[in-house]
């Protein structure tokens, strides 16, 4: 089982990217679980589509049913059989969202999510900024093995990515996840490549994938689906497939048969 956490500035494209990656890996025969660690609970919308637009989050279940629910209640099978989980959060404006993430992930583990579903790949899609201890939970020991940071060349995105990289470095002595690499999601700003490469150097890591900006992404979003599902032949779909391969490789995993033909990126 590989477990990865994807961090990055709010709105940078984390949920869109990991949803596409999840579908690629699931189509390649792996059991994939995507866990949205964000009170917005919108990580898996593209995977669930219109038919399953509504789902109960883990914290909804805890709130409404105390302990009286099962593993199945927390999981919705989305596109390509990806196991979709949303941690959820407190009532907006109340409670503590970060502590909520901790409670949700602990509940998931206690109910046997990892033992029973035995996913090959677990993806934690974490809210934009690591504002408190709760949002570093997915990096903690026993959760993700590797952290991937998603960024564009925009200054704000780079700044957020640098902070995340620093947090990962700080937590090294606690046995937390290490940095797996940077995923560049282009916004087509000036000197984009150069700035992100600089960031990679500062963080002693590298850019493992390069995603162009594409109109297919918002178009797919309109249809509540992923690009790899709707336009599998497109260049963007191929870019997501390459991202999926790069993630597996960064985790030291062999590629499944069907992904071996995907062009491996130069870096």
């Amino acid at each position: 089982m590989i477990k990865i956490a994807v961090y990055g500035k709010g709105g940078i494209g984390k949920s869109t990217t990991v949803s596409n990656v999840a579908v690629v890996l699931a189509r390649a025969g792996l059991t994939v679980m995507q866990i949205g660690c964000d009170p917005k609970a919108d990580s898996t919308v593209l995977l669930r589509g219109r038919k399953q637009a509504r789902m109960e989050t883990v914290l909804d279940l805890v709130r409404n049913r105390k302990d009286d629910f099962s593993l199945d209640d927390m999981v919705v099978r989305g596109c390509a059989g990806v196991l979709c989980v949303e941690a959820g959060g407190p009532s907006p404006g109340l409670g503590c969202a970060g502590r909520g993430i901790i409670a949700a992930l602990e509940t998931l583990e206690k109910k046997g999510a990892y033992d029973i579903w035995k996913p090959d790949v677990v993806i934690y899609d974490v809210l934009g900024d690591v504002v408190c201890g709760g949002f570093s939970m997915p990096m903690r020991r026993g959760y993700a093995d590797k952290v991937f940071v998603l960024t564009s060349g925009e200054n704000m995105a780079i700044h957020a990515a640098a902070n995340i990289g620093m947090a990962v470095e700080n937590f090294k002595s606690r046995g937390y996840a290490g940095l797996g690499g940077i995923i560049l999601n282009r916004r087509n700003v000036k000197r984009e490549q150069e700035k992100v490469e600089e960031l990679a150097q500062d963080l002693h890591t590298r850019i493992i994938a390069d995603l162009p900006r594409s109109d297919l992404v918002p178009e797919a979003e309109e249809k509540m689906m992923t690009v790899v599902e709707g336009w599998p032949e497109s260049a963007m779909a191929e870019a997501y497939r390459m991202t999926a391969c790069a993630i597996l490789q960064a985790c030291g995993r062999e590629l499944p048969e069907s992904l071996r033909t995907v062009g491996v990126m130069e870096c």
């Binding site: 970060g98 502590r99 201890g133 939970m137 903690r140 020991r141 026993g142 002595s173 606690r174 046995g175």
Partner: peptide, 17 residues
Amino acid sequence: LLNGTDFEGIALEIEAR
């Protein structure tokens, strides 16, 4: 407990040091 302090990580760090 309410703060969600990561004791497992802290324990590891103290043990290592």
